[in-house]
Nucleic acid binder design. Structure first.
Lengths: 338, 338
DNA sequence: CTCTTCCTCCAAAACGTTTTGGATTGTTTT
DNA sequence: AAAACAATCCAAAACGTTTTGGAGGAAGAG
């Protein structure tokens, strides 16, 4: 493996000059620079980022901390798309990304700060962690720059990117209302996700603004799981047969509700209309295709990486990025749409 | 940020002793070791992996080189599941994983070797690269340990993990034949994927062994794309109406074929049976649910990482791992299955 | 009492960079 | 002709580890 030392020897200059030549400093003669560059190319030189990182005290590497990168999480490809977005920006600006996946057990072994410092990441992006997660507290207290996805916490060193979940939920429910639905149930996600709170808020606001009553007993916790949502929907549809529409805090749960409705012999959307949240791939392939509030997960990853790296380089003006959502109307709410 | 120097000062010993104490060498008194460990904990010490990597000349980091980590590739979650598998093993043995995503344009800028050496990865896993890819040649020539997924190349420094694609394809086609199909078409992937060759081979073998003729004109190239497969299937079904079954080299293409069949008003599986390959998430959610040859993509990633790290640590006995596939029968081939 | 051996410890070198603070020219200004 | 300046180069320190080759002393063997 060739080093700048080797280049220096061949070129007959000092290693200082090689370093400065390769890094574009002005205090080296253009002729020697060309010679050095030529030699570097011939010797097939590539700089040792470890050595560089050691002396510069930064690695040009960010960590992506996701929770639950498991076989099962592949269904909602949320994590994957965020990852793809992060990767996109990171590679545009010549950073590296290292992936950490945490589980609740793992968190007891190693703290967030340890993880980041040991791996010498300059900053981190956190996705999918819950609001009761031990990491979260640590993140805010540590001095490692970090960007949260879908968790609205802001400080000197932490920023976040999210969508307006209140508005998104409102758009979904208003869509149902505009179709004439008056008896709308909601399957929410677990309460230790910030988005659940907000989507619930949007749900209630939409009802209130339309002058509809809020039935607390029509709001169930599906824990963001397909099977739980199915079970809850079965229960609701059986106990409260006048429900004609469901707003679900995730598409995966909406798929569960579809199953429940089908099992009870209800026609969708005639007997019961269903709208989800996220716009996962499965949504458009479901039968019937699922109406939903689309979030651009790729963009969320991209913007998170952008924000983080701007923060690292001291050129971030704001620490917050709110993205748009979009109502996608498909056949689970409107028959023969298209 | 505390270093071993700080610990040494507090403990009143040399940095050598601290290093050796923390790394479990035997030539340090158990009492001093405990003292040092205690101090390290108090000072919140975490080792600088850059410095360590520099002197040890290895980073305990592997690179995962995937091609086409884009928004679109989320549909077939192949990449994601492999990634999850790699991540799983890597974190079990306390390595790190850094993700590189390549595009054909990017490959011209930076060579594989440069990429690996610059980022100081100890080895790499390559997924999704094509057989005509400039990288592939380089990989074999370079001395960086590497594991290929679904590309059977083996050498001192390169191994691979794959499934038996010939057998997998045979199983699929034999299933169709066992259902009485005699006129079976195939939608293959592009030819610069090794798996396409092999699945084609399996397809032909199955036909031959059953004494059925091979109609070359019934074999189309869907380029692993849903839309292309749909177009090709439309063409085949129109031109050769006696075709009663399709074997597709990927589930995504099978979904395209389903669309084509539906568009022509054919009933599935009564008029035309369809079987795919991969078992992507969408397969079980399709209408009708898609029969397929399942590959355990998570396991492929896991085994690839395992193999690579064994190679790195000199304890790999073989450089090859072949995984099993499994025939999953669903309603696209057999009515009311279950 | 001397010679080994074992147990603990340590100083210094090494890894490959970047950066600091000059040194050496040659050229221009006064 | 002296002084100031610009251009080009370099030696040495620094980053935080691991490893090498001992040093010093205590205990056991003869």
């Amino acid at each position: 493996m060739t080093t700048i030392k080797d280049i220096a020897k061949v070129a007959g200059v000092s290693i200082t000059t090689v370093s400065r030549a390769l890094n574009g400093y002005s205090d080296v003669n253009e002729k020697t620079r060309q010679k050095i560059i030529e030699i570097a190319k011939q010797l097939n030189y590539s700089p040792n980022t470890l050595a560089r990182g050691l002396v510069m005290n930064k690695s040009k590497t960010i960590g992506l901390l996701v929770s639950g990168l498991t076989r099962e999480s592949a269904k909602d490809n949320f994590t994957f798309e965020v990852l793809a977005g992060v990767n996109q920006y990171v590679s545009e600006v010549d950073y590296d990304m290292v992936l950490f996946s945490t589980t609740s057990t793992k968190q007891r072994e190693k703290t967030y700060t340890q993880l980041c410092r040991e791996r010498r990441v300059d900053g981190a992006i956190l996705q999918g962690i819950r609001s009761d997660d031990p990491y979260l507290q640590e993140v805010v207290e540590s001095d490692i720059p970090c960007v949260l996805i879908d968790i609205p916490i802001e400080s000197e060193t932490v920023g976040y990117v999210t969508t307006d979940n209140v508005l998104g939920a409102k758009k979904a429910v208003e869509h149902l209302i505009s179709l004439g639905h008056k008896n709308i149930a909601m399957i929410n996600g677990y309460s230790y996700a910030f988005v659940s709170e907000q989507r619930l808020k949007g749900f209630k606001e939409a009802l209130l603004e339309a002058g509809l009553p809020i039935h607390e007993e029509w709001i169930a916790d599906g824990e963001f799981r397909e099977d739980n949502a199915e079970r809850e929907a079965l229960r609701l549809l059986t106990n409260y047969p006048h429900i004609t529409a469901f707003f679900c805090a995730s598409d995966l749960m909406a798929l569960g509700v579809i199953k429940a409705a089908k099992r009870l012999g209800k026609r969708i959307p005639d007997d019961v209309a269903i709208i989800g949240y996220d716009d996962i791939i499965l949504a458009s392939y479901a039968t019937p295709p699922l109406s939903t509030i689309a979030q651009n997960k790729f963009a969320m990853g991209y913007e998170a990486a952008k924000l983080l790296i701007h923060m690292l380089e001291g050129k971030a003006t704001s620490h917050v990025k709110i993205l748009e959502t979009e109502l996608k109307i498909r056949e689970s709410t409107v028959k023969n749409y298209d």
